[in-house]
């Protein structure tokens, strides 16, 4: 698999921090980041830091992953409805498939997304896990 270092570098902050945008005009928040607000067409957008918590909107189990993701198969891929209302696609981690259910509260963590073999770059980014029970 060919690696595109500049492409991953450009997307680092988005993947690391769940950074989106908020429209200064109508207050709508977006993920991924936008340059024009899809709600009111305003161009004045400010950076918005998502809290990183949400719930499972829908999910599926991936048993035949694309190249580069085999190291963690099988894994769950989900649509996560963030606390702020936006829906993002992400992998679930640290979970027992039998326990997963729509509406389950989850939180974001940083994990290895994939690596370009033994010698290429390692790509990190957000995944979601069931909320850590506090003791």
């Amino acid at each position: 698999m060919p690696s595109s270092v500049p492409r991953h570098w450009r997307e680092n902050i988005k993947r690391y921090r769940l950074l989106g945008t908020k429209c200064a005009s109508c207050g709508t928040i977006h993920y991924p980041r936008r340059t024009v607000c899809p709600s009111c067409k305003a161009r004045e957008l400010e950076e918005y830091q998502f809290k990183g918590s949400g719930k499972i909107y829908s999910y599926t189990i991936i048993r035949s992953p694309p190249e580069g993701y085999e190291f963690c198969k099988p894994y769950a891929a989900a649509l996560i409805e963030l606390e702020e209302g936006e829906i993002v696609t992400a992998q679930l981690t640290d979970c027992n498939f039998d326990d997963l259910e729509i509406g389950m509260p989850v939180e974001s963590v940083i994990r290895r997304m994939f690596a370009y073999g033994e010698s290429g770059i390692i790509v990190y980014g957000y995944k979601f896990r069931p909320i850590l029970p506090r003791m």
């Binding site: 190291f71 992998q91 981690t93 963590v109 940083i110 994990r111 290895r112 390692i122």
Partner: peptide, 13 residues
Amino acid sequence: PGPDEDACTIACE
């Protein structure tokens, strides 16, 4: 560590 964890991800948390 899980298959998607390493010293970097642990350090991040």
